[in-house]
Simulated scan of single mutants.
Amino acid sequence: MNYYDLYADDAGDSHFRDVEVALEERNFAPPAKAIEISNTKAATGMLFLRLRAGWNEPIHPTPVAQTLICLRGRVRVTASDGDTRDIGPGDVWRMADTHGKGHHTEVIGDDDFECVIAQHG
């Protein structure tokens, strides 16, 4: 299991890195059997978002650190260093580029993009 992590360096350039999620087998919901589970990540809010087909926004930093989980559709995200990721159903994207040059997002394909976002601050 992994997610795309978009962050800004000290110079304000945004970059992607692929992060492997560490899972550990433990009892989560006794009396159910132990399951593989990650550590908890704190969240301050959750929202649903839709970008209509054709959406193509200007480059910007994320307003707060947040994690997006794609439900439907696809977007292409370009970091300020030119690296891209196509985000589609089931993909997880952590946005931490809260300062600097930011990233560009555009909906690709004919379907609207729908997702759930957990905000971290």
Rank of each mutant, 00 (worst) to 15 (best):
A118H: 05
P63T: 08
E114S: 03
P30V: 14
H103F: 01
K33G: 14
D91A: 07
A22T: 14
L47I: 06
T62A: 10
I59T: 13
A22M: 07
N39S: 13
S80V: 03
I117G: 03
K33P: 10
N56E: 10
Y3M: 02
I87C: 06
L49M: 13
F16D: 07
I87V: 15
T98S: 07
A11P: 00
L51E: 05
R52F: 05
F16M: 10
N27Q: 15
L68E: 04
A32Y: 13
L51K: 14
A53V: 11
F16V: 09
L68I: 08
P31A: 12
C70Q: 08
M95D: 03
D10E: 14
I108P: 00
E25M: 08
L23A: 04
D18Y: 01
D81Q: 06
V19I: 15
I69E: 00
I108D: 01
P30I: 12
G88K: 04
E25W: 01
L51A: 12
V116Q: 09
R26Y: 00
T44F: 07
G88E: 13
K101R: 15
H103R: 04
K41A: 09
A96Q: 07
L51N: 09
A32D: 13
D9R: 02
A32F: 13
A29F: 12
A34P: 12
L51V: 05
V77Y: 02
W55K: 10
I35K: 09
L6N: 03
K101V: 05
L71K: 09
D83I: 04
L47V: 10
R76S: 08
E114R: 08
D13H: 12
Q119E: 12
G121P: 01
P30D: 12
D81A: 09
G54D: 05
T62I: 06
G54T: 03
G82R: 10
Q66G: 04
E106L: 06
L23P: 00
P58G: 10
L71D: 04
D110V: 03
G82D: 05
D83R: 11
I59L: 05
N2S: 11
A42N: 06
P63D: 08
I37D: 09
A96P: 00
F16K: 09
P89C: 02
A32N: 15
R76W: 00
E106C: 01
T62K: 05
H103C: 02
M95I: 06
F113S: 02
S38A: 14
Q119Y: 02
I35R: 12
S14V: 07
S14I: 09
H15Q: 04
R76T: 12
A79G: 10
D18I: 12
N27M: 15
C115V: 02
N39D: 14
G90A: 11
A34D: 14
R94V: 03
G121L: 05
R85T: 03
Q66E: 11
L71F: 04
N27R: 15
R76V: 09
M1K: 11
P30G: 14
K101A: 13
A79F: 04
V107W: 00
R85V: 12
Q66Y: 01
H15K: 06
D97H: 03
L6T: 07
V92Y: 03
A8E: 04
D10N: 11
A11T: 13
